[in-house]
């Protein structure tokens, strides 16, 4: 092999290395897709229905947004909205009013059951949800959290 060919090979190799270094690695595809509507089944204190806790969560991947319809005890459902980020199976979120989720959650879906486990909290809060469409009467009844807060804190 003559020197020119070796030189060209080295240059080509270096060129390839540089090209590869300059290329962005393709992002790993998030295997979990939360999109859809979910209904709380169990949480740390037990079965939600028995505890008079009723929570629906809707995730929209297209807009990275979530809507939570919750009624804990009596009264109206309250609507909490915001945006979320799911990365590597870890869920974080921020409510419309700027508050963040209580913590990050490790999420998994198996047989249409969504499990969310709190991270960095001991003991862990484990909540399970089943896929279920949010009833129209729940959506109709819900008071937007912002409205309720605004009308109750009226001064001045």
């Amino acid at each position: 092999m003559n020197k020119t060919r070796i030189y060209n090979a080295i240059v080509a190799a270096v060129f390839c290395v540089l090209c590869l270094a300059g290329c962005k690695k393709p992002a790993p595809i998030e295997k979990i897709d939360l999109t859809g509507e979910w209904h709380l089944v169990t949480f740390s204190a037990g079965e939600a229905e028995k505890m008079d806790v009723d929570v629906y969560i809707a995730f929209d991947k297209a807009t990275d947004s979530f809507s939570i319809y919750q009624k804990i005890g009596e009264g109206h459902y309250t609507l909490h909205e915001g945006t979320y980020l799911l990365k590597n199976g870890i869920l974080n979120g921020t409510y419309k009013d700027g508050a963040t989720f209580a913590c990050s959650y490790t999420v998994s879906i198996e047989n249409d059951v969504l499990t969310m486990t709190s991270r960095d909290i001991t003991p862990e809060e484990v909540c399970t949800y089943k896929r279920k469409a949010i009833p129209s009467e729940v959506k109709k009844d819900a008071l937007d959290y912002g409205t309720k807060a605004e009308t109750l804190i009226r001064f001045l």
Binding site: A99, F101, A102
Partner: peptide, 16 residues
């Protein structure tokens, strides 16, 4: 007054 206790609690009362 009804009280429920969980391992997590957000600052604005949101479930997550």
């Amino acid at each position: 007054v009804a009280v429920i206790s969980r391992y997590v609690a957000s600052s604005n009362g949101g479930w997550l």
